[in-house]
């Protein structure tokens, strides 16, 4: 099988284009959902980790450390199998999104905690001296600074979530990897199509990185 049979590759690509596009779409959909929901949850957990009562801090600390110490594959498989036995019937896609959301949230929680802790006490004191309440201090003074600090790390975590979405192929979700495997099982052009899938992921990840760098520039404090 000659690698340079480009003609055949492009033919196959066009023939299977709808399947691949579907796979790509599902990858994007799953990743985006997990990133968005995971970020929202993660920020709240990060808040508890920074400002919570001792008992809350402890519980969320355990949660974050446990999730971060578990491989994503185990999270995906657990979400799929454990929940069905426990009576919660999720489709494979839902289980996958759940696992990825939990994964993303643990990273966002940790970076939020780090960023908030990094802001000097003087900022809060100055805000307090001006009469700002906790919530106003948080919204107008602390979060704007924390979010700017988090941005590069958050972009990283988002790309990691995108890459982790490939693992839901193991529970049968038809995202890009599974789709590629199905295409390859028919035309045996494994080299070309795995490279192509890699290429697509590279484009996705690299774009996210570029957008992130651009955003960093735009919001940076001069």
């Amino acid at each position: 099988m000659n690698v340079l049979t480009n003609h055949a590759f492009f033919d196959q690509l066009i023939q299977n284009q709808s399947a691949i596009i579907k796979g790509l779409y599902l990858t994007a959909y799953i990743s985006l959902t997990a990133i968005i929901i995971g970020t929202i949850i993660g920020i709240f957990v990060g808040l508890f980790l920074t400002y919570g009562y001792r008992i809350n801090k402890f519980i969320f600390r355990i949660y974050v450390d446990f999730i971060r110490g578990t491989p994503v594959l185990v999270l995906v498989l657990s979400a799929f199998y454990v929940l069905s036995v426990a009576g919660v019937n999720l489709t494979a896609i839902q289980a996958g999104i759940l696992a990825l959301t939990v994964f993303a949230s643990s990273h966002v929680a940790e970076m939020t905690r780090g960023a908030l802790n990094n802001i000097s006490k003087g900022q809060t004191e100055a805000a307090n001296a001006l009469g700002l309440t906790f919530s106003k201090t948080f919204i107008y003074i602390l979060m704007p600074q924390a979010l700017r600090q988090i941005l590069p790390t958050w972009i990283n975590a988002s790309v990691e979530t995108l890459k982790a979405s490939t693992l839901v192929s193991v529970i049968g979700v038809g995202e890009l990897i599974l789709t590629t495997q199905q295409v390859v099982s028919r035309n045996f052009m494994s080299l070309e199509f795995y490279l192509f899938a890699g290429f697509l992921f590279f484009i996705l990840g690299y774009s996210i990185e570029r957008i992130g760098k651009y955003t960093e520039q735009k919001v940076s404090i001069k």
């Binding site: 003087g122 900022q123 307090n128 001296a129 001006l130 704007p144 700017r148 404090i221």
Partner: peptide, 22 residues
């Protein structure tokens, strides 16, 4: 909230300025 109101009676300037950088 009452403490915040009480604080409005005074203004403070700090040794390390504590301006909001953003």
């Amino acid at each position: 909230s009452q403490v915040a109101k009480d604080r409005s009676l005074t203004g403070m300037v700090f040794q390390s300025f504590n301006l909001f950088p953003h």
